[in-house]
């Protein structure tokens, strides 16, 4: 159902992330070449991976309970998943190599290159989760179901600290995702999300 191994980092999305406005920004040839060269480098450094789990859920009293007993406590998320009978938990990462390279550019005071790699990494992670989402969406559509938007720990009153249990339950360590002491994911360019499923 899920295959994210061949993600291409979209150039336009990268420009947008860097603040490019089509109607106003005048990008000179040199800047364009340098951005594209570093985008090429970024493309070589990413290794997108995804891990997925799903289960039937019951939603009540501010708690989303999965059939195997795992619980998500957040009144905000409960509202958003109102009417859902199933939920997907997903985590994606593009790997550590791009961050390592970005950091070595920072150390070398190559801010421009660091900036492009960082932005390209963010766009790549976003692209990965978006493609995974669409793949789930296509799969569920066949069963006459629709998806909610995706929500991550830290959203609304879903505590960031829940990230730990969430990733554990999901088995995100299998694709190399771990948490630091501040509940931030490593590799940095990783995204986790909860997606609800309801009948159309």
């Amino acid at each position: 159902m899920i295959n994210v191994s061949a993600i291409q980092i979209p150039y336009k999305a990268l420009l947008a992330r860097l603040g490019y406005l089509q109607a106003k920004t005048k990008i000179d040839k040199k800047t364009e070449i340098l951005i594209k060269e570093n985008l090429d480098l970024a493309q070589k450094l990413i290794k997108p991976k995804a891990v997925l789990a799903f289960d039937n859920i019951t939603v009540k009293n501010g708690i989303i309970e999965l059939e195997d007993g795992f619980k998500i406590e957040s009144s905000d998320i409960t509202k958003l998943l109102d009417g859902c009978f199933k939920a997907y938990c997903i985590a994606v990462t593009i790997g550590q190599a791009i961050e390592n390279k970005r950091n070595s550019f920072i150390d070398d005071k190559e801010t421009f290159k660091a900036l492009i790699l960082d932005a390209a990494g963010s766009v790549a992670a976003e692209e990965t989760i978006s493609i995974a989402y669409r793949q789930i969406e296509d799969f569920e559509k066949k069963n006459g179901n629709v998806l909610t938007k995706r929500y991550s720990p830290g959203y609304g009153n879903w505590k960031l600290e829940s990230q730990k249990d969430f990733l554990n339950w999901l088995g995100a360590d299998k694709i190399g995702i771990t948490l630091n002491d501040f509940f931030l994911m490593r590799p940095e360019k990783s995204v986790s999300a909860l997606i609800g499923v309801k009948r159309q």
Binding site: L18, G19, Y20, L21, T25, K26, D28, T31, K109, F112
Partner: peptide, 17 residues
């Protein structure tokens, strides 16, 4: 005026540095 965006700022900043 949004004629320049962040990468251009950084390139100028690196030149100035």
């Amino acid at each position: 005026s949004k004629e320049y965006f962040l990468p251009q700022i950084i390139m100028s900043a690196e030149a100035a540095q």
